[in-house]
Design a protein around this nucleic acid. Sequence first.
DNA 1: TTGTAAGCGTTATCAC
DNA 2: GTGATAACGCTTACAA
Lengths: 341, 341
Amino acid sequence: MDHINIKKLAEALNLSTSTISRAFRDNSDINGATKERILAKAKELNYQPNHYASNLREQKSKTIAVIVPELANNYFSQAIHGIERVARANGYHILIYVTDDDYHKEVTFIKHLHNGRADGIIMSVSGEANDHNYLNEFGTKRLPLVFFDRIYEDIATPRVVTNDYKSSFLATEHLIAQGCQRIAYLVVNKSLSIGKTRMQGYLDALAKHQIDFEEQLIVDCTNSYDENSIIIKNALTDLKPDGVFTSVERLAFATYYACYDLEISIPDDLKVISFSSLEIAPLLNPSLTTITQPAAEIGDEAAKLLFKILDCEQDKNFLNEVVLESEIIIRNSTVNQLKKA
Amino acid sequence: MDHINIKKLAEALNLSTSTISRAFRDNSDINGATKERILAKAKELNYQPNHYASNLREQKSKTIAVIVPELANNYFSQAIHGIERVARANGYHILIYVTDDDYHKEVTFIKHLHNGRADGIIMSVSGEANDHNYLNEFGTKRLPLVFFDRIYEDIATPRVVTNDYKSSFLATEHLIAQGCQRIAYLVVNKSLSIGKTRMQGYLDALAKHQIDFEEQLIVDCTNSYDENSIIIKNALTDLKPDGVFTSVERLAFATYYACYDLEISIPDDLKVISFSSLEIAPLLNPSLTTITQPAAEIGDEAAKLLFKILDCEQDKNFLNEVVLESEIIIRNSTVNQLKKA
DNA sequence: TTGTAAGCGTTATCAC
DNA sequence: GTGATAACGCTTACAA
């Protein structure tokens, strides 16, 4: 009696396997008493219907896959938490895949997921600069897919985003209002759509306020901590900006470290604003002014969108776009400290 | 030609399904040319062997489940990242389950996972105060299980931990060396083993330095942000400690917020040290002295331990304990600032 | 209400 | 080297 399956349970109860099966499905006709008896015995023997057998039979997995560029980032862990909550409430399990911003990993994950392992995918993309067409190759067999935050504009699938253009515009205007005239924009890869959108808000805000745009004030960073440290220090030293707008929180942290080292005072010498969902932004030295995306809510919405498709309430190619509001929270990193004046 | 399976691929190539199958397994006898032909066609038609059918047949899922108390915590997201890396390298997928520190969720997750969905489990537990015996009820059928960080002492299964007793002892001694005489210990649930172990280090350090222990200096907090805020403010006001040692980073943040509100100066009026894997601890105001656990490495080790069992290199009940070193990193939150003297 | 039996997509065993 | 076939554990017509 090593592994207990439906057959053994049936034998133990002198019933057929179909009856057992029915006890575990809500829709079926089954005698209440028999059902009780079965469930009791199942509990006693610790029987669980084999998931793979059920799914093979039913052709669905009750599993969704979540693909993110990184995990050690407050935004993504909060978003995943939101997704997890909704998935669990719907009786779904979630698989996690981390691309480390590697396009090839993304392609591999997606392709492998089309083997029945998952019923749907929620993804924040990594390969904006690469060929997105691999997603179209599945044709009608493509799994339901929902993008969040980092998306491929040219793939017609539902998405949950924030209005990054507007936030960036307002963030830049905020710096200008605080007296900044030389504002640097720090981005991880400026050719990626998320970097581009955010950059456009920055550029347009500069234009509106008739501040000349200097190409070199757009500082292209990398995924390496050490490289960024050098890049940012050089930028601060050579370009002498009085304001910095960073497209991801990681770069704001790197800027803080650079300023500590170079003895540049934030906000007196340099004002800093960043996209960030860091919950302890108020505790930083100085507290960081942020554009805070509603991360958990984005995860929630993305999951809900996916379940709409899975429940056949919506066609998977219907281009549903949910736009949520980010909030700019002004803290000390962009406001002159009177006590020091 | 909606869904492509092994049968259709076989027909398309005028071969039998067995031959197709062989092309995808490394061990089998198959003509090199045939194999090429099959793989080419498979790629063309975007064929992926159905995961559930394979797993049903092979009775294993190439999937491991990771159960954690929370996700929005630097320690756990780093640990998961470590696990993910090792799992991926071994061709395994990972399922994520978040208990929100709810024992019943933990039990439900574990029970359901014994339906074939996962081949093994890596868990940081939530129910230290509750009955762990549910894990023994599976008998020999229990899935391979590896604990990390928060464990059940009484369940014989491999585990990866840090020496929390020692770290807590040293942390407390550090506060004493900095002149603290009334040291509060903040814990989320003092009856839980992780809270207890860490508390014991604290108590023994006090004893060693002949500091009287006051029951009320052990402050039992909750999982609610708002409740903790009140609890901590009351503790700071009523007990007037000169040092605080917090067992999880969340409580250190709450202490910072409370001090800001109460205008208590860290480190002048109060010194703070905490368990935390926060990478930006140096950026806090003031920078936070931490006991930093090697989170990613712990994840790595836990995954490696699990794979040892899955590869049959080790019995799953062999009580293998890996102890890693935490590091106490002294920063401004525990050191008097000379410039203010 | 319950039982019988076919089939989900694979893979392993055994022929050829 | 390749093909036929049974089996993995479950669900669902259909039959009783």
